[in-house]
Design a protein around this nucleic acid. Structure first.
Length: 362
DNA sequence: AAGTCGGGGTA
DNA sequence: TACCCAGACTT
């Protein structure tokens, strides 16, 4: 019997040791598979599962999603991050209803044309929903290929990524594409992990270049390190009784489309800012502990500043701001740090003896 | 080719 | 603390 190929090793391993009970498995419903693939972009399985369950319960099919308010979609995405994914998902659902009669497209190019779906995600949907022979290249596959075939260089570099795509395409099996694709994901998530990979349990160990040359921990080549820029801001908690003022953020930029707290530059007079911006008279309350929030490309140092609104003036219509009861606000599409702030504090008073602020170390 | 876009898991 | 994760999109 000839030495099993790369693909045959992955397929055989997947059937015995792979994951078969994830919430989005055991279906060929392209909608269910699509939603899972979008949520799983840059997000780990264990984080996605509860979000996925809630989302599918609320929007069980593409028509219900297409007919939803964007705010309702974003609210279910709150805390998951990369909110453009949710806006694109919503827009794509409406596009499918408008141009495909509500039926998810079945050709690779039509899938790829939908907003939020790139080459790898389109391939994953084509494989799992329609059994098409397509190559994926996510973080798991990049790591497996870089190690097994000794591809050095940071995979974010276009030249390296091109090489990995070429490898991925060349390794596809003639049959069993679903088990193969799922097997790569499962191998990367459970065996060929970034640190402490379980090489002794890997079906690829006999043919793995990195294992033979003791390169496993150094492949794939890590991203070149760069120091994150530091930014500072002040988030205003404007309390009127148990109501708080929320402001809708612009669609583009950080926390796009979410409901956040009014934001002022560090060091400005908060009362004056609020008077000019909203026409409100306020009383300054003691500042809350500052904390920091790290994004992909910068670190934000946040000073939470509560103020008590003495008289609730009428907000200009269409100004993008509104008053919400604290409980209502917690049901809105909030950025994670704002959610944590509102969950921990009300009217400027800590709800707990020891204020457990998000990353309260500065 | 480089920058933008979150949040959490993990060591 | 620092890195990575079922990446896509814009410039």
């Amino acid at each position: 019997m000839p030495d099993p190929s790369f693909a045959q090793r992955v397929i055989a391993w997947q059937r015995s040791y792979g994951r078969h009970d994830l919430p989005w498995q055991g279906t060929r419903d392209p909608y269910a598979i699509w939603v899972s693939e979008i949520m799983l972009q840059q997000t780990q399985v264990t984080t996605v599962i509860p979000y996925y369950q809630r989302f599918m319960a609320r929007f069980p099919d593409i028509v219900s999603l297409a007919g939803a308010q964007e705010d309702a979609v974003l609210a279910l995405w709150s805390g998951l991050g990369y909110y453009a994914r949710a806006r694109n998902l919503h827009a794509a659902a409406q596009a499918v209803v408008a141009t495909h009669g509500g039926r998810f497209p079945q050709t690779f190019d039509a899938i790829l044309a939908l907003p939020g779906i790139g080459r790898s995600t389109a391939a994953a949907i084509a494989v799992f929903a329609f059994g098409q022979r397509r190559a994926i290249l996510d973080g798991n596959v990049k790591r497996i290929l870089a190690r097994c075939f000794g591809v050095s260089g940071w995979p974010g570099l276009p030249a390296v990524e091109k090489q990995l795509w070429s490898l991925a395409e060349s390794l596809l099996p003639d049959s069993g594409i679903e088990a193969y694709t799922q097997g790569l994901m499962d191998l990367g998530a459970t065996i060929c992990t970034r640190n402490r990979p379980a090489c002794e349990a890997c079906p690829l160990q006999p043919i793995c270049h990195a294992d033979r040359h003791r390169l496993t921990i150094s492949l794939p080549t890590p991203r070149p390190d760069k120091t994150l820029p530091q930014k500072h801001t002040m988030l205003l908690l404007l309390w009127h009784g148990s109501e708080i003022l929320l402001e809708k953020r612009p669609v583009h930029g950080i926390w796009g489309g979410l409901w956040s707290l009014p934001e002022a530059e560090r060091g400005v007079d908060a009362r004056q800012f609020v008077r000019r911006r909203f026409g409100l008279e306020t009383e300054l309350l003691p500042a809350l502990p500052r904390f920091s929030h790290t994004f992909t490309h910068f670190r934000l140092h946040i000073l939470p500043q509560p103020l008590r609104v003495s008289a609730k003036a009428t907000l200009p219509p269409g100004c993008g701001a509104l008053w919400l009861e604290r409980a209502e606000a917690l049901g809105a599409a909030l950025p994670a740090p704002v959610r944590k702030l509102l969950a921990t504090h009300d009217e400027g008073v800590s709800r707990s003896q020891t204020p457990a602020l998000p990353g309260s170390r500065t």
